[in-house]
């Protein structure tokens, strides 16, 4: 699905956009492409969804969003689509995914990430979500330590 040239472009792009006046030209030079051609390829990646977003990723902890909670919900299978769509619509929910439950130890099949200034605020947000969707027995899992956070590097050492 991806050509060798696509992979070469991804390898360069994942190093980040250079902080120079003509950053696409600088990357294109390394790839032996024209600046126009590289820009066209990036737009094509965006159209195909290979690039989800072309912008900055920030550390939200540094911006005052210090508490983040993974809120997990045991949703009846027949309500999963409805509840997932509903919770995704809340501004305070940044991520919302369905994942397989592993009962009895792990009965939760819907995962939401919420961000607040404090743990207390996260709890209030979760209670509002619960009231909206009518799913009880949800749990908040706060992160107590970040053990690793890195950007994925694709197509290295293959």
């Amino acid at each position: 699905m991806l050509s060798e040239l696509d992979k070469r472009i991804i390898r360069e792009l994942q190093e980040g956009l250079p902080l120079v006046s003509r950053p696409y030209q600088a990357l294109a030079d390394r790839l032996n492409l024209g600046e126009d051609e590289l820009l066209a390829r990036i737009k094509d990646f965006i159209d195909r969804g290979v690039i989800r977003r072309f912008g900055a990723a920030v550390r939200h902890q540094d911006l005052g969003f210090v508490a983040n909670a993974m809120v997990v919900w045991p949703v009846p299978e027949e309500r999963l689509e409805e509840v997932g769509t509903l919770l995704a619509g809340f501004d305070k929910v940044s991520h919302c995914y369905a994942r397989p439950a592993h009962p009895p130890g792990w009965p939760y099949n819907l995962f939401t990430m919420i961000h607040g200034q404090t743990e207390q605020e996260c709890r209030r947000i979760a209670a509002r979500l619960a009231a909206a969707c009518g799913v009880e027995n949800y749990r908040l899992l706060f992160s107590s330590a970040e053990l690793k956070k890195s950007s994925m590097k694709y197509f290295l050492g293959e």
């Binding site: 699905m1 792009l13 902080l19 989800r52 900055a56 994925m152």
Partner: peptide, 28 residues
């Protein structure tokens, strides 16, 4: 603009500048 961005990157406020890939579409 460049010097502000450099400072934001150096201090880690910006973790990454540029392409954020969809790992599934990349084939992973």
């Amino acid at each position: 603009t460049l010097s502000r961005l450099k400072r934001l990157c150096d201090t880690g406020v910006i973790r990454r500048l540029g392409a954020i890939f969809d790992s599934r579409r990349v084939g992973y």
